[in-house]
């Protein structure tokens, strides 16, 4: 990515402590606008802690952070309004219909009724979900749920969308269709910040950071990382780093 593209996330010396335990140990990185940024790491490496801070859900112990152009200490509500979030579970309400979920999330993000109707119409058409509009979430297949959850997370046109293991447990065809949607969102200028345990998905990211024990152990394009660690795939890069 060229240097002229502006940063959408800037993190300088982020430290987060829980008592004497250092969950994030001086993290420093930038994410560029429109980038697909892979945020990888072993279990317990500190990924979730960092994501919570970036989403404005938890305060850092120290460090400078700007997300979507807003300061993480003083402008948390503005940060929240300019990001989208989707996790593997609990993204949609099982006992609401497809449309009710869209209306609910649209309302939370302050969209007008007319806007919600227009966008939900467009969204259903794009996903081919028109027939499922009034079905309960619990009655639609998991693959559909994940695609809908992603669409809902970007319904308000956020600057950044955070995806926390969005493809866990999803069948291999749907997993690939999901990545098509990620590419499309990035193409439309939405920055994608994604965690995954599928190492083939790490290859689809523009840049990847790998956390080990609270620190960023590596950060670069997948190609450069493979070269640097003399590894044939991102899976091998990951294993070399996390086992070191």
């Amino acid at each position: 990515m060229s240097a002229t593209i502006p940063n959408i996330i800037t993190v300088k010396n982020l430290v987060k402590k829980f008592g004497s335990f250092v969950a994030n140990d001086h993290l420093t990185f930038e994410v560029k606008k429109g980038e697909i940024f892979g945020f990888l790491g072993a279990n317990g490496a500190g990924k979730t802690t960092a994501i919570k801070i970036l989403c404005g859900l938890s305060y850092p112990t120290s460090g400078e952070l700007s997300v979507a152009g807003f300061d993480i200490y003083t402008q948390r509500e503005k940060v929240k309004r300019n990001i989208g979030y989707m996790s593997q579970r609990f993204s949609l309400y099982d006992d609401l219909t497809v449309f009710e979920n869209i209306r609910f999330y649209g309302g939370i993000y302050g969209l007008r009724k007319k806007e919600i109707n227009a966008r939900s119409h467009l969204l259903m058409e794009r996903l081919g979900f028109e027939a499922a509009r009034d079905k309960l979430i619990r009655d639609i297949p998991l693959g559909w749920k994940q695609k809908l959850a992603f669409s809902v997370a970007i319904l308000h046109n956020p600057k950044i969308v955070f995806l926390d293991e969005p493809t866990g447990g999803v069948d291999p065809i749907t997993r690939r269709q999901f990545w098509d949607m990620i590419y499309e969102a990035a193409h439309d200028g939405i920055t994608v910040f994604v965690t995954t345990h599928y190492m083939d998905e790490a290859e689809y990211c523009d840049r990847v950071s790998i956390m080990v024990d609270g620190k960023i152990a590596a950060l670069d394009t997948p190609d450069n990382l493979k070269r640097e660690f003399d590894a044939p795939s991102m899976n091998d890069v990951f294993i070399k780093l996390a086992r070191a």
């Binding site: 790491g41 072993a42 279990n43 490496a45 866990g168 447990g169 345990h197 990951f238 294993i239």
Partner: peptide, 10 residues
């Protein structure tokens, strides 16, 4: 091994 990182899976 669901939700477990690549090294722990191995």
């Amino acid at each position: 091994t669901t939700g477990v990182d690549a090294v722990s899976r191995l």
